[in-house]
Design a protein around this nucleic acid. Sequence first.
RNA 1: UCCGAUAUGGCGCAAUUGGUGAGCGCGUCCGCCUGAUACGCGGAAGGUUGCUGGUUCGAGUCCAGCUAUCGGGACCA
Length: 1099
Amino acid sequence: MKKYTEYKGLNLPEVDKEILKFWDENKVFDQSMNNRKDAPTYVFYEGPPSANGKPGIHHVMARTVKDLFCRYQTMKGKLVERKGGWDTHGLPIELSVEKELGITKEDIGTKITVEEYNTKCRETVMRYKDMWDDITVKMGYWVDLDDPYITFKNDYIESVWNLLKRLYDNGYLYKGYTIQPYSPAAGTGLSSHELNQPGCYRDVKDTSAVAQFRVIKNEDAKFLFDHADEDVCFIAWTTTPWTLPSNTALALGKKIDYVKVSTYNAYTGKPVSVILAKALIKKWFKEGADELDFDAYQQGDKKIPYRIAAEYKGEQLVGLRYEQLLPYQQPEEGDAFKVLHGNFVSTSDGTGIVHIAPSFGADDMMVGKQNGMGALTLVDKQGKFTDNVGEFSGRYVKNYKDNPDYKNVDIDISIKLKTENKAFNVQKYAHNYPHCWRTDKPILYYPLDSWFVKTTKAKDRMVELNKTINWKPAATGEKRFGNWLENLQDWNLSRSRFWGIPLPIWRTADGAEEKCIGSVADLQAEVAKSVEAGHMDAQIADDFDLHRPYIDNIVLTSSKGEPMKRELDLIDVWFDSGSMPYAQWHYPFENEEKFKANYPADFISEGVDQTRGWFFTLHAIAVMCFDSVAYKNVVSTGLLQAKDGRKMSKRLGNTVEPFKALDDYGADAIRWYMMSNSAPWENLKFDLDGVEEVRRKFFGTLYNTYSFYALYANVDAFYNKETSVPLAKRQEIDRWVISLLNTLKKEVDEDYANYEPSRATRKIMTFVDEHLSNWYVRLCRRRFWKGEKNEDKIAAYQTLYECLTTVAKLMSPVAPFFADFLYKNLNDATGQEAFNSVHLADFPVVDESVIDKDLEQRMNYAQRISSLVLSLRKREKIRVRQPLTKILLPVLDKAFREQVEGVKDLILSEVNVKSIEYITDTAGIITKKIKPNFKTLGRKLGKHMKSAAQVVAGFDQDIIAQIEQSGSYNFEVDGESIPLTLEDFIITSDDIEGWLVANDGPLTVALDVTLTDDLKAEGIARELVNRIQNIRKNKDFNVTDRIKVSIESHDALKPAIEQFGEYIKDEVLAVSLDLKAGVQGAEEVDLVDGLVVGILVER
RNA sequence: UCCGAUAUGGCGCAAUUGGUGAGCGCGUCCGCCUGAUACGCGGAAGGUUGCUGGUUCGAGUCCAGCUAUCGGGACCA
């Protein structure tokens, strides 16, 4: 017969290794799915990590969340397949390759071929795959890594193309332009990633100009003019005067207050009325100048007089027209040179009126688009003015070429404005401006061609379907994600890079005809036509690599036989990962059934930073292509911070190395700590001390409970083969713990089902720690080691066994290693269940019939009463081994006495007292306290509550007794009489005259501390038992060894030995107990109050 | 500047959804139990629940405003 394995101590990392070996050898993960082959599915999507970076401790957190719900659902009888995946494209990979090769973007295609470069990317992208595989295994994350989806595979790309084609066909793809950071010196757009590199934003001094835009005097503008020849101008500030020739609008704020100020132009001395924000007058006019005499002004005076002539709301000015400032070019389309409202306009800088050049600012373009403005782009991609800008034509707007003779265009433009009476103010201005990280030159914002997904078209549907998704936490879905959807912009899909999925769109040179390709077969069909038309030499192979540069060599043919070239862009990598529900199965080209059975996902989980990332792209593609959600439940996990609450970073040296942490503490302690510390969506301050605490308190206790069980079950050869003792025949405490266990099953089940792992883990901890170990086992110890293997003992074993196996199952989703270790140790010995792993077992089903809330209440009384008695003992300095005669207990209500009687023996043995005496108040010795029950009384009395509370506080003992007896009380207020019942009051015993009392809520306990000689003798006997047991233990005797005890004679011991000798012998398994003088080799032991005795214990 | 989250003893977290001495764990100090290499128990110290107002008989909880931290976005004319 196999025995329960007994261990020398708990070593969680060892447990991990042992269990991993077992899982591996028995293919337990496979089994857990194969067993459920025909079961309903629970679909999980794995968000693909990039193996280009090393895994961190936060990945352990994110993946614990994923793993635990998949394991839970498997135990609930679902088939949960977990296809892994790798994100393999994207800028971080390209940048790391560039860095490694010591090249820049411009070198690709010149110093190194695109082919070589992409080969390098393909090699690099899986650089840390081994490390990822390693951590996946070590942390116990069950995911299928044998057959993962990989985004750079042709099949995957083909599926993505299919999605793009669907979008294209439904009018979701269009070509437009956006304003992006652009480096003329490098000739390339910059990503926000590149822009956020340290040192990118620098303080520089530029020439800033406030220009005067002359208002056109028409019907609408009439109200601005006080006299016919008044010169009224809007003034707007810019730090980039080179954008002024491209100005097409002005923006102001509707709600901002503006003023018209009469003054003189500082450079020409001509009178002028300028309009600016009221709040900014002080910025542009000298103090006291509003009191100067206008007529006395001479050109060149330092102080220029001014007067506020009128005041307007921004709203009144919207729609007015002005003369073009520098009329070199007219915009080809749109309604330009108008005043618009812009919600970004503030009065913190400038004049409260913003110069708008739609080609050179993102806000500018947005406001221009919204108002149908035209645009002027009078600077080319080299950063110089185009040919049609008069005297400035061909000049660089910044010194991009390091020309030593470079003349600042901003200054020259400013001079021109001054001489033409168009400059209100020109000065140097220091500000923070982004620079290109490669060339160190200032960037400029420039319109670049891009392909867009018209997500705005599907916005309403996305919002609607989002409401059907269960977000954890809800606020992330409703607010964060919901708001994001409400303010949706079109999705810029284009990336001007090399390693990624190419945009499958071909165009003729004039853009008149374009084709979007949705599959390799489509492409081949088009290539066939092209070969016929003579644009290509040969058909492409079936396994033609769809990446650049090969794809760029494909030239298609238009309906008119013109060559069509591919649009050179790649698509945003977020589209790659958002396509995984389809592309992981190569849908729709293969696996249609598989796809349908696995769509949409029941559950996904990633970090909250994915709200605008993967969560969005999954949702957007699903809504636009399939009018469906992509996932039904989503848990967005919080950030993992260092223990000081700061971000973990290598620079601060506060990172936690995941492999070391796993090696030191084992996966379970870390997983359990992460889940129990706070809800997964809260930020977690990760502290290894907390992991250690979990290990000690939870796993240590549970392990020890098992050890205790194993020790005695082996002695008694208990393998749970006996008929189960009916609950009715078991002790009260057995029924109690089984009742709690079933409550636990129920609640933990609900918590897991509701994606609330911290609630579940905390409840399991409380059960194991407080109830099972420190109450059940503690109080039942004797049943396990005393006496014969009778029914009561079997009942105890059966009860504990059930608790342990059930806990193993309940905890297994979060702590898969230890749970299996525990389960196997138990089940392998008993063979009770057919499963050889807890992960193949079913989730425990609650038995409502054994949940007895009354019993739980009783036991709660027992625990609290015991605790009160112990506190009294402490106060009186009477040790627990000293028996006492009785406890006095005031009776709270009728049920109370009965309830306490049910657990009386437990209390008495726990606190070492002989009896309980109940007292009712007939003797008048109990002082009572009364308090309103706010919850019930508040509803009845409402605003009279306050006065009622005062009245109640004034009740004396007589009134309290009266209320208790009659069970009712009439509260008089404002001539009104409100009947109250006993329920509306909380009456507690406060004191018992002449006794030592302690209180805990309604409970009051008094203790009789009189010590008789008999009690003293018994106390000494108990002390002796304790000392002898300690000696046994120190001598490493087996718990079953019989011993001989000799004690050095002492008067104080005689009564104890005489009266309780048999008791002592029985307790310590002694065959003899002698009290004699001159014991050889006795141990000196401090017994009580400085009484030292010599004891000899022999086998 | 906008959006979101968070704010409770030294630290980490609770508080049954508005009901009244604000709990638990860690840590510190004193004491105890242990036939279980684990845990626990009793006691002590430690709180104006970020601030200010409001609603209410009653607010840690609801509302408004503010502050701080974190995250995300926009912008830096």
